[in-house]
Nucleic acid binder design. Sequence first.
DNA 1: GAAATAATGATAACGGTTATCATTTAAGGA
DNA 2: TCCTTAAATGATAACCGTTATCATTATTTC
Lengths: 136, 136
Amino acid sequence: MERYSKQRELILTALRNRKDHPTAEMLYNDISKIMPSIGIATVYRNLAALYESGQILKIETKQGESDRFDGNIKPHLHFQCLECNKIEDIFLNEEQNNQLNEQLKEFANIIDAEMATSKIVLKGRCKDCRDKKINL
Amino acid sequence: MERYSKQRELILTALRNRKDHPTAEMLYNDISKIMPSIGIATVYRNLAALYESGQILKIETKQGESDRFDGNIKPHLHFQCLECNKIEDIFLNEEQNNQLNEQLKEFANIIDAEMATSKIVLKGRCKDCRDKKINL
DNA sequence: GAAATAATGATAACGGTTATCATTTAAGGA
DNA sequence: TCCTTAAATGATAACCGTTATCATTATTTC
């Protein structure tokens, strides 16, 4: 059975305290300041467990790039800036969310499949990078 | 400058001859039958080059799972079955495609970002797996 | 407390991909 | 056609994020 551990609590708190989408290693660095003895494997293990139990989100990235984690489990889209690589949240209102899901389910119906979830990452240029370009 | 190579031609042809979404290794296996001397690194190198020049698509998968490649560059969505892991294409008509893109661009506007591309993977149960379940 | 057994920490192993480097080969003249 | 040059190749080592292993520690239950 699942058993309480100080480490898991620290990991969940550390993730919720961040407003970005940290990697396992970033969280490990944060937590090391409080509990220097923690091992990186424990961070990975607990993030996996928290993800499987639905307490956090995981943004799977491509090979060789670390996965990102998200303490905010309200459904939302992600936007990744192609210039600075930052990942931002896009929260939709319920109406927008339902409408999008309905449309995607229809698309799945085209091939007679049942959609359960979708993974959407928008890519382009974030506000900061756009503003930076203008100032050059 | 870019220079012709028999290997690159074989790789592109091998990919186009498949209707699924093979991994680099699957293509390597196919091509080895014709050119046994080819090296796996050459396959990876050329797939990367073909992707960068827009001649093929790449479906980036999660860590520890091989990337998939697609010789069909007409814009389309992907559906991955959570049971059998197969990836299928979903082709939208132009109207559906434009409508979806417009909607996604609006979502990016919420955070003042400019969307260039989107990566959408629908997940759920494919037709085959659904039919299989019914027959049990 | 004591026993049972999850969870941990250190580190080796893993898997897909990329880098390295000597060798081969295509391209463009002489 | 031969020569030069530099891109492409093939073999393999290295890389990097992640997972497995295993002895040790710590939480739960009695």
